[in-house]
Simulated scan of single mutants.
Amino acid sequence: MAPTPVHFFSHGSTMMLGEESQSADYWKKCGDEALANGIKGVVIMGAHWASNDDAIEVATNPEPQKSPVAYVHPSKYKDYALKPDVATGHRCVDLLSAAGFNARANPGFNWIHDTYLILIRMFPGGCPPTTIVSMNPRYDPHYHMRVGAALRPLREQGYLLLGSGGAVHNLYRNVWDPMIKYGDNFAQTTPPGPWALEFRQSVEDVLSRGGGPGLRRRVTRLMKHPLFRDAHATDDHFMALCFVSGAVGALEDQGQPGVLAAEDWELTNMCNSQFTIGTWSASSTTVR
């Protein structure tokens, strides 16, 4: 079958689970399209789980719990049934090991909001079979790009690959008062900082040029951007984008369009940009 599209989603603050937004609407649209095209499951790399040593892990807990979510009423997530895809998790370990990674299954991992927040918004009617892949704690962009490349064959077998991170995600430079005092994560009492606007534009410029080998070079090079450290005080939320660049960065992906489909600013300086690279095949049913 034709390779599935790949998504890079900026999951933002925990309040993105409970508040309506352009991003939430787009996540739902992407979920509807995935179901209409009969996906077998989801393979996702988030930003909040890295292995404890120089390895990469894949979640294989058959009955995972959910980590609590701050600033969101438990009714928004507590009763949502997770559906871990243990068999595909082991397949991912095999693919990664064959590509030369020190990869292993983690049968005790409990899911974190960076992944199930997205799943709840994409698939409110029920979680599809899902596999979660960890980061490596060295946060090497080329390493995480290669992880996506190693798992790219799953796209041709009906799996939806996505990264859940952040386009501009520096918690130290956010303006937290409106959220803490008033529960308003979208308040913009002042414009975003120039550093945030500039790096956000650079991310769009890189992804809007579409898939293929050039995407891998462009994304990994963003870590050398003079404003990268302003936009990402830590590297974790950027690794999901590196993973995506590998998953849709093969020669066969050349010419696949990259689209910025939705965006919300939170906490003044956090930019939640939602990107899709690639399309569903023209012969498939697509939700409009």
Rank of each mutant, 00 (worst) to 15 (best):
L161W: 03
D236F: 03
Q188L: 15
G193P: 01
R216P: 00
F238D: 00
A262Q: 02
H237A: 01
P257M: 14
A247D: 04
G258F: 11
G246H: 05
L267P: 06
G258R: 06
E204L: 00
Q201R: 12
G211F: 07
L171I: 08
R200P: 00
R200W: 00
G212L: 15
R216V: 01
A261G: 10
L207E: 04
L171N: 08
R200E: 03
D264Y: 07
D230R: 01
F243E: 04
L251C: 02
P213F: 11
L171K: 09
G258S: 05
L251F: 04
F238I: 01
D177G: 10
A250W: 06
D184K: 14
S164G: 10
T190D: 13
L222H: 06
M179S: 14
D253I: 02
H225F: 08
L197F: 07
D177I: 07
Y182P: 01
P191V: 06
L161H: 08
W176R: 10
H225Y: 12
L215A: 04
V259D: 06
R173F: 09
V248F: 03
G258L: 08
L162I: 13
H232T: 01
W195E: 15
E204F: 00
A196Y: 08
G212V: 12
E263R: 14
S208R: 12
V219A: 01
R200G: 14
H169V: 09
G249T: 02
A196H: 06
A187R: 13
L251D: 12
L251E: 14
T189R: 07
R221C: 05
L241E: 13
L207S: 04
G183I: 05
T234E: 07
G183W: 01
V203C: 00
Q254T: 09
M223E: 13
V175N: 12
L222C: 06
R221E: 15
F243P: 02
R229L: 02
H237K: 11
G249A: 04
P192H: 09
S202T: 06
K181F: 00
C242F: 06
G249S: 07
G246R: 09
W195S: 08
P213A: 13
E266R: 02
A240Y: 05
L227T: 06
A261P: 00
S202N: 11
R173Q: 11
I180P: 00
R217T: 14
D177P: 00
A261M: 11
H232W: 02
G193R: 08
D184C: 06
V219N: 00
A231I: 02
E198V: 12
V168K: 09
A247E: 11
A262N: 02
